[in-house]
């Protein structure tokens, strides 16, 4: 009789070999990430003996931060960049994944080209944004030479404005390939079966998309948007270089505190980081909770 190796539902203790295999992950997650998180939390409550400060537990840093209108402006701006760029990324990625699902002339080359931003660092994207989108950039000069505007300086301020179109453009540029890949993987797994069935039953293209394709794409959309949103909320370089100054996003605000000549401000900066972690954690948990409810309603969980 052939016996199949199936994972048993009965939980068994880990062997030494398995513990060794898991060690690198545990070391990074618990040692570095977990350790840093605990240390950050301690600092934000006034524990920094290496600066000569040991007031733990002192909530003043949070009280000061949360009672300042600047913090809430910064938080709003941070969430605005995070949400808008994630939504824009999804709006672009879903149709793109649907297009790449079908083989067409040159689709392989186009797919490879569309993945290029994944391999290019963020700093290059920021530099490209400066070269292309700035008031002295290529697009503004092109618009001026075509007579669309009087001079490059009259070009609408895409960069260094609180609308943050430059920041959003960089986020979207970098994240669309990742989102497209995640959604395309789900699409390829689904196959054409249910969509063809819907068409045969009389559904038009938009009905097939909204009622059959999109609900089945949700796992890919949720995982891609969770990852991208979490990154956008915590990103520093793009809002630092391309942002419009005061009020700044929370990571930039934290950096300013860290960079201050007065070391004491580092504790305030840590309170900013902990607050940002809390807010994004609550948002992500809420999003996941809502998604799981949606899936449960559809019988998938």
């Amino acid at each position: 009789m052939i016996q199949h190796d199936r994972p048993s539902s009965h939980r068994q203790p880990l062997s030494l070999r398995e513990k060794l295999q898991l060690a690198p992950l545990l070391l990074v997650m618990l040692g570095l990430f977990g350790g840093a998180l605990v240390l950050g939390l301690l600092q934000s409550f006034g524990f920094a003996p290496w600066f000569g400060i040991n007031e733990f537990p002192n909530p003043d840093y949070f009280v000061a931060l949360w009672s300042s209108p600047d913090f809430w402006l910064s938080l709003g701006l941070t969430l605005y960049y995070g949400v808008v760029s994630t939504l824009l990324g999804l709006i672009i990625s879903v149709p793109l994944a649907l297009a790449f699902e079908r083989r067409f002339c040159g689709s392989k080359v186009l797919l490879a080209v569309s993945r290029l931003p994944l391999m290019v660092p963020y700093s290059v994207g920021i530099a490209l944004a400066l070269i292309m989108l700035g008031n002295g950039g290529i697009i503004s000069r092109l618009a001026a030479s075509l007579g669309l505007i009087s001079d490059p300086g009259a070009f609408p301020a895409i960069l260094h404005s609180h609308w943050g179109w430059g920041i959003i453009a960089v986020y979207v540029w970098k994240q669309v390939p990742f989102m497209t890949m995640a959604i395309l993987a789900v699409l390829l797994g689904l196959g054409q079966g249910t969509r063809e069935a819907a068409m045969v039953l009389g559904a038009r293209t938009h009905q097939v998309f909204w009622r059959v394709t999109l609900p089945q794409l949700m796992p890919g959309i949720v995982s891609a948007s969770l990852i991208c949103f979490a990154f956008n909320v915590g990103a520093f370089e793009a809002p630092f270089i391309l942002g419009g100054g005061y009020p700044e996003t929370l990571p930039v605000l934290a950096w300013r505190y860290f960079n201050d000549a007065n070391y004491v401000y580092q504790l305030q900066g840590m309170a900013v980081i902990v607050s940002l972690t809390l807010v994004s954690g609550v948002i992500l948990a809420g999003y996941l909770f809502a998604y799981r409810r949606f899936e449960r309603k559809r019988g998938r969980l």
Binding site: G193, E196, A197, V200, G202, R204, R300
Partner: peptide, 18 residues
Amino acid sequence: VQHRHVGLVSQRFNLFPH
């Protein structure tokens, strides 16, 4: 296909899982 008014039942049934 939408206007042919045919019915198709396939091997995998292709029911809408959601």
